[in-house]
Each structure stands twice: as C-alpha cells, then as structure tokens.
Amino acid sequence: MTEALPLPADTPAGLRFQDVRIARAGQPLIALDAHIAPGDVLTVMGPSGVGKSTLLAYAAGFLDSVFQASGAVLVDGTDVTRLAAHERHMGLLFQDPLLFPHLSVGGNLAFALPPRLRGRAARKAAIAAALAEVGLAGLEKRDPATLSGGQKARVALMRVLVSAPRALLLDEPFSKLDTALRGQIRDLVFEMARARGLPVLLVTHDAADAQAAAGAIVEIAPA
C-alpha cells in the first residue's frame, strides 16, 4: 500500500503537501509529499509518537517552535503556509469533540459560521439546517455537556463544516468513540466530506479507520 501516489500536477484543486519535512532539534521527524484531490482521503498511519499530529499542526499553523519545517502546504494551488492560522480555513477534528463548554450547541455553530452570512434569521436557519442534517434538529439551546458522545461528535463535525473549510484535518477523531458508534460517525464524516468535495487528511493508528477511509495510505515508521 505504499506505491507512488498519483500527483496530478496539472490540476491544482485539492490539498497538496509539497515536499514537507519536519525536524526536531535537527533530527528529521516526518516527511510527506502528496496530493489529495477534492473528496479524497489520504490516511497517514503509524504508531503514536512518530509525529503524525505534528504534521497536522504544521498544516493548520500551530507548529510548536521546537520543530523546524520546510516545504509548503497548498490549498487549491495557493500556498497557505505563509498565512496566519486563522486565515487558512483548515477544518480540524480531534479525538475529543472540544465543544466550547461556555456556549450552547447553537452558540458553538454560530461561532463557526462565517460572518459573511448576514442577518440573524439567515444565520439561525443555517444552524438549524446543519443540526437537522445530522439528526439533531432542535438542539440549539442545549448545553454541550448534556449531549451523548455520539451527539457531541456530530456537533463537532457540523461546527467544522459550517465554517466552510477548504480541507479537513482529522487527528484520530474516532479513537475515543465506542465500537458501535465509531463506524457510524466515521461513515458520516467521510460521506459529508465527499459530498462537499473536501480533501481530507486523516491521521490514525487504527487500520480499520484507514480501511474505511478508502483512500491512499502512507505508513510512517518510527524514526
């Protein structure tokens, strides 16, 4: 499963890792050169501690200053590496839903909804539609702490999606869900990403996740 990945150089659409190399104190940690077309999933697999999450942090703009990185990340042909983290619009999902505990479910989605969508009514409608899309219609006023694990995961997913990201970065987002829920949420995430034509980078140590992603897989060995 480690054969050369297709790199359609003439179509810039999608998420491209262009000769990305990350090192820590001079020691090479992780390298990736890959292109993810819209709607595709690239899975980066490896045991914990090999720097998979570092790769996501680099793409999202949160790389700790103890690391040195070279290369570039391009979204639809534009280099985002030079942009501030909040201008990159990389949707992030972690293994915890990380819903803001001080905001209601609706408040969490409103925080994510871009300001260019104007008008209270329009914003409320967008939030209601997003919740309905994942079977949570009418839960706007709920305290996130009162939701079940599966509900939280779905709210977290919709929070990312309503922010209109240009790509999705998934950091073991299913690893804390129990087995029954896991497959369900996983399918939901990939289905939504495909429907919206989002390129997805999935980082995981679980072979089942990789298989379900049904995309190219890059194995990272411990350095």
Partner: peptide, 29 residues
C-alpha cells in the same frame, strides 16, 4: 487549560483577538 480549544477556534477562522475574548477568557473566567 487545553490549548486545543484555541486551536479549534482558530481553525474555524477566528482571529486571535476573537479567540481570546470568545473562547480563552470565558473559559478562564
């Protein structure tokens, strides 16, 4: 405090000041 709340907010497109006022400060109230 969990730094990932700030990261999530930033990735959703919130500039640093908004992350402070809407996320980090309320959580540290």
């Amino acid at each position: 405090a969990d730094p990932r709340y700030g990261h999530v907010a930033t990735a959703l497109g919130a500039p640093p000041d908004r992350v402070f006022w809407r996320v980090r400060l309320p959580l540290a109230l």
